[in-house]
């Protein structure tokens, strides 16, 4: 049985590296990634699980890191936008298709896209919509994000 009380040192597996952090059991993974590990790609857009800007990938599935306790992430593999291979196709596609403007939602969208494309390399339209509906973009028309994903599927 695991039990965490008060400030505790835990080890997280982030972007393939073992990282040691000191957390309270009520600390949120998002805050630990940002404040302790300097991984500020995940953004606190709402801290309520509604906007998707804080999305990371946990054990292959997208997760809103504002709805995960840091202690829950022990033993899981976490991938953040900083851990995407340099110049991953989805990043290039976002650039090529104008799939961002202010850039604040971008990391979250990229992580959902990356998780989806890892699981479904050629997702059908309804799958694409279902996965990407977890995130909000306020700048683009969404058409650009859709086009970016499609441009990868077609490759």
């Amino acid at each position: 049985m695991l039990r965490y009380e008060g400030k505790t040192v835990i080890e997280l597996d982030v972007n393939g590296e073992k990282r040691t952090v000191t957390v309270r059991p009520s600390d949120i993974l998002l805050d630990v990634l940002r404040d302790q590990l300097g991984l500020t790609g995940a953004k606190p857009g709402c801290r309520n699980g509604d906007c998707g800007a804080c999305t990371v990938i946990m054990d292959g599935l997208p997760a809103k890191s504002c709805l995960v306790l840091a202690v829950e992430a022990v033993g899981r593999s976490i991938l953040t936008v900083e851990g995407l291979d340099a110049g991953s196709p989805i990043q290039g596609a976002f650039v090529a298709k104008s799939a961002f403007q202010c850039g604040y939602c971008t990391s979250g969208f990229l992580m959902v896209c990356h998780a989806m494309l890892s699981k479904y390399p050629k997702p059908e339209e309804h799958v694409l919509e279902e996965w990407l509906q977890s995130n909000i973009c306020r700048c683009t028309s969404y058409q650009e994000i859709r086009d970016a994903v499609k441009s990868i599927i077609q490759q």
Binding site: R3, Y4, S26, I28, R47, L69
Partner: peptide, 13 residues
Amino acid sequence: MIPANFIYIRPDC
């Protein structure tokens, strides 16, 4: 950010 503290317990059974 959750301001308050709590104890986290993950039982195995």
